[in-house]
Design a binder for these strands. Structure first.
Lengths: 250, 250
DNA sequence: CGTGCCAGGTGCCTT
DNA sequence: AAGGCACTTGGCACG
């Protein structure tokens, strides 16, 4: 059930929003307004035509005419109030921790609607990092010939190492897996794991590619890089490859 | 100028969207639909009531009833098409590089509106990390009385130290600045810089606050914590301090 | 609550 | 175009 108002007065819009807030409906409001934000950072946005979205869980989004990201926002769990003051509609949102405030001051509301979105569908994501681990754990030869993996996702004092194992020469090995290009961070992560151990471990960083600086740091530390062949791995997934999904749905 | 349709037929909605696309208007559409995505990853979302937003620059956002993040999206620059097929409205978005596809299949459209958002306002962001460095470099007394800073953003073998300097007692000093609460990793970072030097350096970690564990580690290492007074610093910026902004606008 | 770490991260700036 | 890095990153899992 949709409720909507076209070119409402600010009083009408304010009442409308307050009604929607009480029943935790979603509200979409298009109008002319300015935005102030204070919190971890702060920002000011002068008056302009935008979209403001209030979700039932207390999140707020302000979208301008371009781009993926909202220009201002408030995450879920905020306390939201709306009132008319001095001929302007003021929408105020307060986040408790960290302390953050967002205020939208409306000169005009062009259109506003609210609804309770009935949406029970499950969101299914394609192969994640976890999926890659499973495949690699069953096929350590993709990482290195003769490698035996002894544990996965092993918690250390300083983080969780993806794999532990023993290489062809009998050396203990830590393996860090990245699904995408490995950067300096990944090398540091691996280094931290190995430094945390009293005994000697070889380090293997396994990723589809690696940045130049990361490789340089890796070599300086004496660790190894192993190129991960994504196509070969995806052949082993139950999930259908890109091309097939494309053919089927698109 | 707003155009809107309440409970349109799928044909009406499709025509409406195509008209809006031609003039690169923003479109907000609330309805019952499913979403498929294939690209860097892939995802499937069964039918449910949601909001779909198309922006003039070719970005697409699908929002469910909860949370800050869109469940599916397409960044700006995509090619968008809309048609009715087998009694469903299909909205298709293609990204060129990387190759990514998003498809929304509508069973029903509850409300749809479009508008060209006139929005020329400048978005002004509060102090960034860079801003803090500049201010602190010019006002080292905020860090410590009698401190002289000799260089900023100096590259070491192990990273980039924010400031180097000499304290009142003539000791060489490394300063690491954090804009937010300093955690254990900030201490480790500082420690790494100092360990990398052949000569002795004092370590100062400068942040608005510090976690208990980080402070404990810092003290164990013999380094100093300096509370960064954000209000005092922001006085030196053209940007007004938190409390004042709060008083004035909230 | 802090710590660690992934994300279809996104956006910005540099080579 | 690719790499590096900050972000009001958000989000989740775990101690």
């Amino acid at each position: 059930m949709i409720q909507s108002l076209l070119y409402p007065s600010l009083e009408e819009a304010s009442d409308f929003i307050n009604s929607a807030l009480r029943v935790k409906n979603l509200v979409v409001c298009c109008g002319l307004f300015s935005v102030e934000y204070v919190g971890r950072s702060s920002s000011t946005l002068g008056a302009g035509e935008r979209i403001l979205i209030i979700k039932g869980d207390g999140s707020v989004l302000v979208h301008r005419s371009k781009g993926y990201e909202p220009v201002n926002w408030q995450p879920s769990g905020c306390i939201i109030r709306c009132r008319v003051e001095d001929g302007k509609m003021i929408l105020f949102s307060e986040r408790r921790r960290p302390k953050e405030f967002l205020k939208a001051v409306f000169d005009k509301v062009y259109i506003i609607f609210s609804t309770s979105l009935v949406d029970e569908a499950k969101f299914l994501m394609g192969p994640s990092e976890e999926t890659f681990y499973s495949i690699l754990f069953q096929h350590p030869e993709f990482i290195e010939k003769g490698l035996r993996l002894t544990s996965r996702q092993k918690p250390l004092s300083t983080g969780v190492v993806d794999f532990t194992g023993i290489d062809e020469g009998g050396n203990y090995v830590f393996v860090e897996v990245k699904r995408r290009t490995a950067g300096v961070d990944a090398v540091k992560q691996l280094d931290r794991y190995i430094k945390s151990q009293p005994t000697r471990f070889r380090g293997i960083l396994c990723a589809p590619s690696i940045t130049k600086q990361a490789l340089s740091l890796l070599e300086k530390k004496g660790y190894s890089f192993r190129k991960l062949d994504l196509n070969r791995i995806s052949k082993l997934l139950t999930i259908e490859p890109f091309e097939e999904t494309l053919d089927k749905h698109f």
